[in-house]
Design a protein around this nucleic acid. Structure first.
Lengths: 299, 299
DNA sequence: AGAATAGTGTCTTTTAGACACTATAGT
DNA sequence: ACTATAGTGTCTAAAAGACACTATTCT
């Protein structure tokens, strides 16, 4: 079949000059979450949990010295998933990790070097699997504990719509540093059409728009925690139900009722005959994920 | 601050040569859904609804003559959202539309011309808003009714995991044509890590990997219908509760109980004093979206 | 009149929330 | 013995499911 220039498809493809169009660079950036434990002096008490994200300190311009999400450019022979797996492996030495595409950020000015889009990925992993190669001269990687709280909220109601503006504070603590970003989340309704936009209001010590990407990743994790079993991707192979509940609580940032929680997860786990001992109290049974459920569920 | 080559940030940026790296083209592709009505001869009966997607017939290579999602390349001065809005306006003449980023497809071979990534967007709109400029010589746009059904399913359980393979058939009917794509959805569980992959098994009359993108969009719409109020983005300003229920039913592809449905949506709508008349039966009250809820809800 | 849809009432079942109670290791 | 956690039972409240019943219009 010939096109309007009288070319066959083969001839068209031979004559196609991709250089005629300007192209962006495309990077992948990884929001890698894990759950860490705080020190606990009381031998009886359980250790507190915290949600952590992996950052690397930039060893070159731009944002030299700032902390950034691990990532890198996508190569012509790979898809973004492959690039994400590659970067993740380079950074943590781990493969076989839960990975999910998050969002593609594409503001023309987001990178001072050139036109760079970032296809971001969310990765979840059990802390025990990662052994960060400590202080590898130039680049150092570290876990940062994160908190994400609503600073202020404003609603304006108009005749045919309205605007809700929320400002969240993202605080990342680790390596003796405290990185703070303020993220503005605007929900607009206009003639029935709803739109949500995110903007970085301020950002200290965090490179590029990575504060926004982390906020995005956290919201995804929180939302999905409500309607999928994604949380298990953060758990080790064997765990107690209390540990599982702690992880839910640290993600959702609110306490859950024990009895209710256990009823709800009962069908997602299988009991083992092992017990976790050592605390000054009744030992708790170890459970494993019942992965058969994954093949039944919708996600 | 100087980097390891002794350059300031400014000097580094001046010396940065973006051409040193190979770059992909980036396009946006739009999955535009709407709800259409079938003809109904019986004056008493309600017209059946169907979910439809907008396709354009390709007027050039590659895939000359095939149907494809509307879309185009992203320009250096715009983000993908802007490009999506621009393409949507060019195609339908409508702005102020619900738009949501869907997924970025990046398989190196997905476009025979060159390395092209597609950042896809989901758009929802009320059918009444669009007036397709019919048969504009070269390019013609048309609504295709879609059905998406499970053809076969297979589960393999292994010691430490399992694989579920589902094959769905996507059928698009419109313009006297019937486009059929088979999409394979693989859910894999390995050592507790769950991954889902989509692959296009076969595809007739649909360009590129657009069958996969449509399936992806439909799944997103279905899922979000369960936990957000996204469906209202498909409704006109005033509607009856039965119309609303019909739209839910055509998306979820199953009947809902009337009384239960009305209880659930009651707090999302506001009653008007208008009635929809003309059917040979009791007139039904017209409702409008209560957009105040959007500013309260989480999404 | 009667077909077809609009709209409501209420009973049952399921799920979530609240909270108290018993059990058990380890110092 | 006592502390802190493990694990269960049960009552209540809310939401979902099921279905029947009444209301209303137009040919």
């Amino acid at each position: 079949m010939l096109d309007k220039n009288g070319l066959t498809e083969e001839a068209f493809l031979r004559s196609y000059r991709a250089e005629d169009f300007q192209r962006p660079s495309v990077a992948v950036d990884m929001v890698i979450f894990t759950v860490g434990e705080a020190e606990e002096k009381n031998y009886r008490k359980l250790s507190g949990k915290s949600l952590q994200v992996l950052l690397i300190q930039r060893g070159g311009h731009p944002y030299l010295g700032s902390w950034a999400l691990p990532g890198g450019f996508v190569r012509p022979d790979e898809c973004t998933e492959k690039a994400a797996e590659r970067e993740l492996f380079e950074e943590t030495g781990v493969d076989q990790v839960y990975l999910e595409q998050l969002y593609t950020f594409s503001e023309p000015k987001r990178d001072p070097r050139t036109w760079v889009m970032s296809c971001s990925y969310l990765a979840l992993l059990d802390r025990e699997r990662v052994q960060l190669k400590a202080g590898d001269d130039a680049v150092s990687a570290a876990w940062f504990e994160l908190s994400y709280t609503l600073l202020r909220e404003e609603k304006v109601m108009l005749a045919e719509g309205g605007v809700k503006t929320q400002v969240y504070e993202l605080v990342l603590s680790g390596e003796g540093e405290k990185l703070v970003a303020h993220i503005e989340r605007k929900t607009r309704v206009n003639e029935g059409v709803a739109t949500v936009t995110y903007a970085l209001e301020s950002c200290e010590g965090l490179a590029f728009d990575h504060g926004k990407i982390i906020a995005y990743g956290l919201e995804r994790l929180r939302n999905k925690t409500g309607y999928t079993d994604i949380v298990f991707q953060l758990m080790p192979k064997y765990f107690t139900l209390t540990q599982l509940q702690q992880v839910y609580e640290v993600i959702l940032d609110r306490p859950l009722l024990k009895a209710v929680f256990r009823r709800k997860v009962a069908h997602l786990v299988v009991e083992t005959d092992q017990y976790a001992q050592g605390g000054g109290h009744r030992p708790s049974k170890l459970y494993a994920r019942d992965w058969r459920e994954d093949l039944t569920a919708k996600w």
